[in-house]
Design a protein around this nucleic acid. Structure first.
Lengths: 343, 343
DNA sequence: TCTGGGGTCCAAAGCGCTTTGGATCTATGG
DNA sequence: CCATAGATCCAAAGCGCTTTGGACCCCAGA
């Protein structure tokens, strides 16, 4: 079933049918009703490719996911982000097209996406410090929105991000207020921009109390359960061990908790743990009423929604002036933190 | 830059340029070389929409992800599966288009995907027992491949699946051989097909030793850390507690371990834990040399690759005779299992 | 010398839609 | 009664590509 045959069945021209279905005013309400009724009855949907070719708009948003050969990890946050963005796309009639590329081909992938014209814009994930993708995107003239920001780039761009500095600053103050002096930071990979910001928040809070960060209490790496466990165990074995841990993800926190318990200590009494929580669908921090960990919480799914909405709006309006959306994390208090033990 | 202007610059017709780039024989090797050189220099890539319209092939595969309002969980396995499939798509020149829909709209989504013609086939995730999607897909005439199978459907279809029955049967035998008699099963959601099969494997092994399954030792639910923890804790509090746990995912196993340790027991000595491991990128079961949990292991990412390859092959060949690919899980032995304690 | 078959290339017709530039008809006001 | 504006519809061009059906040239074989 295509436009032409539908038009023939109705005794109308394709022009009129097209206009009726697309809401143009040059068609009487009577015939519009006839047309929509017939279209529904025939389960007619305009062919996507033809529509795209004719209008020049792809009605699709691209996400490029680089797969690196070195550490082949699929970001656990990714699925939830995608789900959030996808909801918005679906409502707005956009498709989401994912491209998986070996990371050495990432630049080429953006270029091809552009010249093949199969997306109207792209969403950029997991920016690193001094990320080169922005300059590339800008030279391509393809609309984009970042999930995160890029320290060290002066040109402006559109982004949605959590206030990582503030979140970790508050979290650190929270622990300091409980009397902790030796606070460890188990962070994400060092050149990820969000990790850099979280560290800055941590250091700001320490500095506010005239405390110097101890390099032995700062670890970086992929945010897995094993990383949390191994780093925490090593730190607990130090001559002067930490009394509190600040971790970058729930998985790391779970690993840290395991290390604490293995050491015969009790979480919340002997050692406190405070983590960031992305509110992943499959990794809940207990319930709202009773969180397991004290945490700075911010929904990555909501971030996906906001990114998508911003990008679509930008594409639809044709306005490419950079926008931004800074989300604040909330601090939820669970049983994993308590006063620093007497020394 | 489009075909026409490229052809003009070369002093050739669009026909010839198109044929040169697409490898048709009716063009001399000399001009083919000229054309490809010019195309590369100009970073020319044929417009996707135009190509699709002309050829009638969308060069895209659809994945429909239903989001249910009830339990809004994004399957943690999903990201890795997608990554595997995406690798294959990228190599074959296919796009991957994801559609997120509220699950009451899922049927409509498939129909629209078909009539709008923006995919050549679909991949079906997470089939449930008596899943209705297959009959729908078959009536639509859209090529598809299932990740998993559907008990209770007699018509044949294409699928890629792990031998869940065998895996859990072996796992149960492994525990039985260690002397365990009270083995608990912490399974996935009951009407998911894979969960049904795993349970069958578990029950087959028990039956082979003339043991009746104890309903108190069988739990179902979403495979989260909290679920594993809560179920295991409840079971350990039974008058006649289990000495071993069989869990359906690494997250559940981590939860079970926590419950075991909270009870003052030692994993691998007092209580054994054996889990299925999907080899997720962000949730490793220790290292290959030293796994944390004894586990039945099967890469979901590899399953994604195989699904994608099968579907693409099916589309390209035009053959819709059902195929299947049964993957066997391997049993890796870690420190989480040991002989049943003396009673 | 003539014929026919490769080897190369091209003109033009789609693919299914949107959109421009009318055409036709009816009501309205002077 | 006529000119005009508005309402309603349509023919045809065009989006950028593929593909069919030749056209043309050159050379081998009769």
């Amino acid at each position: 079933m295509n436009l032409k045959t539908l038009a023939q069945e109705l005794g109308l021209s394709p022009t009129t049918v097209s206009r009726a279905l697309n809401g143009y005013p040059e068609v009487s309400e009577a015939t519009r009703a006839r047309v929509t009724a017939a279209a529904n009855a025939a389960h007619y949907h305009p062919n996507t490719q033809a529509k795209r070719l004719a209008t020049g708009r792809a009605m699709a948003i691209g996400h490029i996911i680089p797969i690196s050969g070195r550490h082949e990890i699929v970001n656990p946050v990714f699925a939830d982000f995608i789900a959030g963005a996808g909801e918005v796309y679906a409502r707005a009639g956009y498709d989401m097209v994912l491209t998986i590329v070996p990371d050495e081909d990432e630049a080429r992938a953006y270029g091809e996406l552009r010249s093949k014209g199969n997306v109207d814009g792209v969403l950029i994930h997991a920016p690193r410090v001094n990320d080169h993708r922005i300059t590339m995107l800008q030279s391509l003239g393809l609309p984009y929105v970042l999930h995160g920001r890029i320290s060290g780039i002066e040109s402006s761009y559109s982004w949605v991000d959590v206030n990582n500095v503030r979140a970790f600053e508050r979290a650190t103050h929270f622990l300091l207020d409980l009397g902790h002096q030796r606070i460890a930071l188990i962070n994400g990979i060092g050149d990820m921009d969000f990790a850099r910001r979280r560290r800055r928040g941590y250091e700001l809070a320490l500095a506010a109390r005239a405390l110097a960060p101890d390099p032995l209490l700062i670890a970086e790496g992929e945010m897995t359960e094993a990383q949390g466990h191994d780093q925490a165990r090593a730190m607990l074995a130090l001559p002067n061990p930490p009394t509190a841990f600040l971790t970058a993800s729930l998985l790391s926190a779970m690993g840290a908790r395991r290390a604490v318990e293995e050491a015969g200590l009790v979480m919340g009494r002997d050692v406190s743990i405070l983590t960031h929580d992305d509110e992943l669908g499959y990794l809940k921090n207990g319930t709202d009423q009773q969180p397991i960990f004290t945490a700075t919480r911010s929904s990555v799914r909501e971030a996906g929604r906001r990114c998508a909405a911003m990008l679509i709006d930008q594409i639809a309006s044709g306005e490419h002036t950079p926008r931004s959306d800074l989300m604040e994390a909330v601090l939820v208090v669970g049983d994993s933190t308590g006063p620093a033990p007497e020394r």
